[in-house]
Design a protein around this nucleic acid. Sequence first.
DNA 1: CTCAATGCAAACTATTTGCATTCGA
DNA 2: TCGAATGCAAATAGTTTGCATTGAG
Lengths: 145, 145
Amino acid sequence: MDQIQIFTDYLRQQGLKNTSQRMVILEVFLNSNLHYSTEELYLKLRKSHPRIGYATVHRTLKLLAECGLASELNFGDGQTRYEPCRGGQHHDHLVCTRCGKIIEFVEPRIEKLQEEVAERYGFKIMSHRHELYGLCSDCSVASES
Amino acid sequence: MDQIQIFTDYLRQQGLKNTSQRMVILEVFLNSNLHYSTEELYLKLRKSHPRIGYATVHRTLKLLAECGLASELNFGDGQTRYEPCRGGQHHDHLVCTRCGKIIEFVEPRIEKLQEEVAERYGFKIMSHRHELYGLCSDCSVASES
DNA sequence: CTCAATGCAAACTATTTGCATTCGA
DNA sequence: TCGAATGCAAATAGTTTGCATTGAG
């Protein structure tokens, strides 16, 4: 089942409506490997669909997060970002503090250790965030000068 | 060298001044195991020192973060929190999404794997955040009913 | 038709800043 | 004395909401 299907099913099930704005936003959001903030996605959408309002983008992103198609990210720059959840493997992020580049990584051994830690404290993990901040290869080369 | 010493040295070195407000804020901040937001610390301080303004608390916390005595935390509730850095071992956090309890944990094996991941991408880690969200032992018992 | 969704503007929250006054060195 | 710090109020930035109108079911 693809993501558009998941979304329309979720809308029907919640008694919500399948509007053209929602479909456009979902489509642009999915066809991107970026980590959009509400503002960025709004600006991008405005080029092709000038009538879509900021609030609609915001509310749709929230909706996508609710139904599990998007996850909210926060890299400490004061903006909430969203990325598509591709049902697949969970990943975390390397964030370059100089150029802003974001690299996704997967490390099952870390996931496993997390579970171990949680168990140690009787905790039941529902989600987690793990971000490594530093200089990407390009930026650390540049700063050696 | 204790933390008050570190702070006064830092101030002198930067040509900044050692004011009574800064000392009071530092003291209250250090003598706490909480993870204060600016607002919480301001409210707490106001009881004993009603003349200290919000902006001063805010600027002092920033200053403490700058000189390495505090680290900024963000658990996604829209408030930046600060915790004292005790020069010791780095730790991360378990956050109970029901009652708000925060538990600190240390897991050197995770730190090590992080380095490994960073190396894989030519990244030079400067800092990181790792938070596990879920239910603490009390809350997951309560929700079993 | 009906009620949810939209777009706009306004409200809100957390954070940051400008400025006259105070105060440490 | 002099410039940094303070406290207040106002500005900012990101997010959220109220409401009249539009539009899907």
